[in-house]
Amino acid sequence: MRIGLITPEPGHPLLAATVALLTPEHQVETLDPRTVEGPAEPLADVYLLKSRTPRALALARDLEQRGAPVMNSAAATALCQDRTAMAEQARRAGLPFASTRTFTRLAQLASGPPLPGPVVVKSRHSRRHDLVARLDNGTQLRELAGAWPQEPVVVQDFAPNSGWDHKLWAVGDQLFAALRRSELSPEGRGPTLPLAPDDLPPGWPALVRRVGEVFELDVYGVDIIDRGDGAPLIVDINAFPGVRGQSGAPQALAALTLRRANRSSTASTRRVAGVRAE
């Protein structure tokens, strides 16, 4: 099988370990979206989209239009970058997603009514080094607006919790989990602690898989906080996260990649056979 990686970082631990599992029998090539002009023919049997830049999304869309399967799709990846669209999609589907308000500029929020209580402010468009901050009062808001005045943002009411985020990842049908101290906690971001999926509260694994169905994602992460009674609150969804330090994640990704590649190869063979029969 031929497998393409759409990424500027093929050395990422998850990708590197997955490639090491695949290369003894399969051909893997990297397409750096910063430099590649277009994919070479013939197309690969499947492409893994591990980048969220405009150039990477454009490359993925071009591949899809030419009939190549991309995992995750360009549309699903782009949806997870827009936190306003993400929240709307989740709440329409009945998912327990944090109530989300959108402001075209952070300065607009600062010039409005006083904060009703602690809130979490995030960049509307998810990207590396974006804005995520807890604000408790107007002084903090004005200071943040002074540093990020033009930033489009979303605002979520702060939900009291233990200070630990549940980091849940899905690679196909396989689920991985960990606890990580929230970057919004007074102590700041802390270590990541192992968490067995079997130790999750009842219904949480099914909720994660429902997220995958709603957003049409194959490899994704779901950030959930426990409000104290076991009731989950989803605060973020990520397309193709790093899944760092999770034993078995590279094996799961390699197996999923080959399943998608085999499905693509079988469908292509059937199309060719149909043409010849005609």
Rank of each mutant, 00 (worst) to 15 (best):
I237H: 02
L59G: 13
P232K: 04
N137L: 07
A177D: 15
P250M: 08
A98G: 13
D165W: 05
D82T: 06
F240D: 15
Q89E: 12
L184N: 02
Q251W: 12
V243M: 12
A16L: 07
T192F: 11
R276F: 13
D218P: 02
R271E: 13
R66W: 11
P69R: 00
V235W: 03
E183H: 14
A44E: 12
A78I: 06
E88P: 12
T269C: 09
A16N: 13
I234E: 10
A76P: 08
S73W: 00
H26F: 06
L168T: 10
L15Q: 01
P39G: 11
K50E: 08
A98P: 00
A277K: 11
L233G: 09
A107G: 08
N72Q: 03
L135W: 05
R210H: 09
A255P: 09
L48M: 03
G245N: 13
F176N: 13
A147G: 15
E9F: 10
T35I: 13
A273P: 14
H12D: 14
A277W: 06
R227Y: 01
R91D: 06
P191V: 04
D130W: 05
A16F: 09
A56L: 08
R134Q: 02
R270I: 07
L258K: 04
E64D: 02
D82V: 09
W204P: 00
A110T: 05
A177M: 08
L59H: 14
G11K: 08
R61F: 11
R55Y: 14
G242Q: 15
N238M: 06
P191C: 07
V155E: 04
D136E: 05
A177I: 03
L175C: 04
R61S: 09
P96D: 03
I3L: 08
